[in-house]
Nucleic acid binder design. Structure first.
Ligand SMILES: NC(=O)c1ccc[n+]([C@@H]2O[C@H](COP(=O)([O-])OP(=O)(O)OC[C@H]3O[C@@H](n4cnc5c(N)ncnc54)[C@H](O)[C@@H]3O)[C@@H](O)[C@H]2O)c1
Ligand SMILES: NC(=O)c1ccc[n+]([C@@H]2O[C@H](COP(=O)([O-])OP(=O)(O)OC[C@H]3O[C@@H](n4cnc5c(N)ncnc54)[C@H](O)[C@@H]3O)[C@@H](O)[C@H]2O)c1
Lengths: 229, 229
DNA sequence: ACACATTTGTGCAAAAAAGCACAAATCGTC
DNA sequence: GACGATTTGTGCTTTTTTGCACAAATGTGT
């Protein structure tokens, strides 16, 4: 009778995790990090769900895809679960990010301190504007500030090779975004975060996630319009 | 036989439009706007789908929820369809936006010109930082620049009343986001765009959309990690 | 050792979203 | 004015996601 084959066997993460689940893991991870900072040892699915705005059933099902890391009747150990999620998502390694387009938004992203603490390091800035190229931009918030040189667009491939960047951020105007994306891909980047309001077409095997702020406002406006009175 | 009851009857948009569809309408709208700018008169579902990165069947089904605005064998009239989407989404009116938190990100949003051209007007800036309050910040890109005064957090309710803002943007640190959100709601705001990396809990009837950049990078990292070699 | 209160993990049902395939409508042409 | 080439709109199927409910596991107290 196989009564001794349990938990540890399903921990191997060869299992396919659904896209919907993946999109929620970061929120769980963040909440767990905060709980860990606050020295909390354990948490129930009910509480963690409330913190992250999902139902407890969904939370448990999401987590069950990673393995059986909770204890029935008790809950989850905060630090242990946090570590498991970070391992699953590849957050226990550092990720190098290149930002293309150092305007309003690119600069705000560079200044932002919240990335570093999550294992993302902005390692290169690239722009096409001659007056920007060669200038220095502060990266990261207080504590871990680094000054980065803005490189010329023509050096994009070299910069990526030298810095080993694996994530690319497109923060150029819409007109340039596709060209920039093509060059990022050609230089070996296979994960792109796009802020320009255009659809980027990329070869299979390359992931693009878009952040479209105007769309978000439009979606809000749509619902707002429908609210009576 | 009711063979004379067709198209026009289903145009009334009392019909429920699915959330997935709503989230794609802005992309269609933007592509159509570009096509209109380029003087293109007509477009097929196949072409528009390619421009926006969806399948043509999905595009047609999405559009069919608004009404029957295409012509079989021909396609859609760019300007007409664009107008129908804008009407459906409430984009033929202006939406006033209040931004709370005028740091890196809040400032970038304020400077951004792309909102104005889509009917969103930043009408008020609010911050808690004494050194920022009373200073002026340029809003909008060249052409339609306005200088806005940064108001004190204590004036939030008054500012919202005076400016009639209906959309609120939270760009404060995570610690303050829930408090700010509560006050926005109390002041009558029922649509919030949240950039702070926390889940905002709001009463029923209030919509929150979150833009979580660190999460986006983490999702990319997850997939990147899984790509062999 | 045993009853009891918790809380997880999951099988199954329901709902939502995406994809397929084709009839119906339209246009241009002969 | 009939025919063939196109392209929409949509019924139906498949897949994905969410929600429900409860058995299985754990801890506690007596
Ligand atoms: N700023 C915002 O709040 C905001 C909001 C929504 C969307 N966006 C989008 O984000 C993108 C950036 O916005 P922004 O406000 O920072 O614009 P911006 O004009 O301030 O900055 C764009 C930067 O890209 C550079 N650039 C132009 N072409 C380039 C190229 N081919 N290669 C490299 N760099 C190039 C420019 O020199 C400039 O520095 C735009 O697509 C915009 O639509 C911005
Ligand atoms: N800058 C980015 O690229 C970026 C990226 C991802 C997420 N975010 C998130 O967006 C938010 C803003 O980021 P930022 O880089 O602009 O931070 P920031 O520190 O530059 O700006 C925050 C601003 O909010 C103000 N503020 C603080 N408490 C307030 C309160 N109670 N009411 C009103 N204003 C208050 C501060 O005075 C400051 O001006 C943060 O939650 C951050 O985590 C920013």
């Amino acid at each position: 009778m196989p009564s001794k084959v349990p938990s540890s066997i399903k921990d191997g993460h060869t299992h396919k995790i659904s896209e919907a689940t993946v999109s929620r893991l970061p929120a769980y991870y963040r909440a767990l990090s905060q709980l860990a900072d606050a020295q909390q040892i354990r948490i129930s699915s009910e509480e963690l769900a409330a913190l992250t705005g999902v139902s407890s059933a969904m939370l448990r099902k999401d987590l069950s895809h990673l393995g059986s890391y909770g204890t029935r009747g008790v809950g989850y150990e905060v630090e242990f679960l946090r570590y498991q999620i970070s391992r699953e998502m590849g957050l226990n390694q550092d990720w190098s990010v290149v930002i293309v387009g150092v305007g309003n938004l690119g600069r705000a992203l560079a200044h932002y301190g919240g990335f570093g603490s999550r294992g993302f390091r902005v390692v290169a800035l690239v722009d096409a504007d001659q007056t920007l190229i060669g200038t220095k931009v502060k990266c990261g918030a207080e504590g871990k500030t680094v000054e980065l040189l803005v490189h010329a667009l023509s050096d994009l491939e070299d910069v990526i090779k030298e810095t080993n960047a694996r994530l690319g951020v497109v923060a150029t105007p819409a007109e340039s975004a596709q060209v920039v994306s093509d060059r990022l891909v050609k230089a070996g980047i296979r994960s792109i975060l796009n802020f320009a309001p255009v659809h980027l077409s990329v070869p299979e095997g390359v992931d693009v996630r878009k952040v479209d702020l105007a769309s978000e406002l439009q979606i809000l406006a749509f619902h707002e319009q429908r609210k009576a009175i």
